[in-house]
């Protein structure tokens, strides 16, 4: 994205201002910022829902895998950009997990034997063997989101966008979902953008943090420094505080902590020689 501005049809104030963003292959990015800062809008530009579905005025240069989402029908963008939404309830339509996963492929008109093969792959990969004929509506929140990700990933997109995918989940289910995305990033070399407010949950997985505020990107880069600089907007994990205070006292910690366990390891190594 270069110099992207966007204004919703019902409004005069732009919600995105002069956005420059380059996402490389295999990157896992946390997109954070206060509600209403434009994160969800930015995410919807990537798969063309904005402006194709919502209208409005969109300016600037946008290329996703060589395609301009404005000039590509949304269903074609679905092959390049997978999108997982906050509420799993609203993205699961069938009474059978297999059929749910197959739906995107059916819409693309793939021959049944090929759909079968890909659905089987997805079921194996996501550990859904025992749930394959269950109704998604009856699954737990974490399982629902797992099915939602599987049914998007089965179309083999190159970029996966997740808009607050864990907001309704308990922390352990949330971490599992974020871990699934990490595996896809590592195995298939896809890129992923996750929108999430609880920074500490995502921290173990992401390589880069982008912070937005009032329609602009105000921070972009390596997680530790970006989070420290923008902690007034997005908060910061408690362990960053411990790390920063120890460093300030000259304590020789050489890498910032992704998890409390990692920080404990580093401390032990230094203290116990």
């Amino acid at each position: 994205m270069e110099g992207v501005n966007y204004t919703y049809p019902s409004s005069e104030e732009p919600v995105l201002r002069n956005i420059d963003l380059r996402i490389g292959r295999g990157e896992y990015i946390l997109l954070a910022g206060p509600s209403g800062c434009g994160k969800s809008t930015l995410a919807r530009i990537l798969n063309g829902l904005i402006p194709n579905f919502y209208g409005g005025k969109l300016e600037g240069k946008i290329l996703v895998d060589g395609k301009d989402p404005r000039k590509t029908p949304t269903y074609e963008m679905a092959l390049t950009v997978g999108f997982v939404f906050q509420n799993p309830e609203n993205q699961l339509f069938f009474s059978d997990v297999e059929r749910e996963i197959a739906f995107g492929l059916e819409n693309l008109g793939l021959p049944p034997h090929e759909i079968r093969r890909k659905v089987e792959d997805a079921i194996r990969k996501y550990g859904l063997e025992n749930l394959r004929h269950r109704s998604p509506a009856e699954l737990s929140g974490g399982q629902k989101q797992k099915v939602a990700i599987a049914s998007v990933m089965v179309m083999e997109p190159k970029l996966l966008v997740l808009d607050e995918p864990t907001a309704n989940l308990d922390p352990i289910s949330a971490v599992k979902v974020l871990g699934l995305v990490k595996r896809e990033v590592l195995e298939r070399r896809i890129s992923a953008i996750v929108i999430e407010h609880r920074v500490e949950l995502v921290l173990p997985y992401v390589d880069r943090v982008v912070v937005m505020d009032r329609g602009r990107i105000v921070g972009d880069g390596e997680p530790y420094s970006v989070i420290q600089e923008n902690s007034g907007l997005i908060g910061r994990p408690a362990i960053f505080d411990v790390y920063a205070r120890l460093r300030a006292k000259g304590f020789p910690l050489h890498r910032w902590p992704r998890t409390p366990e990692q920080l404990a390891e580093d401390l032990k190594r230094i203290l116990q020689g």
Binding site: S173, V175, A238, I239, T259, P260, A264, L267
Partner: peptide, 23 residues
């Protein structure tokens, strides 16, 4: 906590590891 789908807060996780090492 895990039996209830929860994770301890970060400082508790850190403290737990450090107490095992006697720090």
């Amino acid at each position: 906590l895990a039996s209830a789908g929860l994770m301890p807060p970060q400082l508790a996780r850190l403290a737990l590891q450090l107490s095992r090492a006697g720090i």
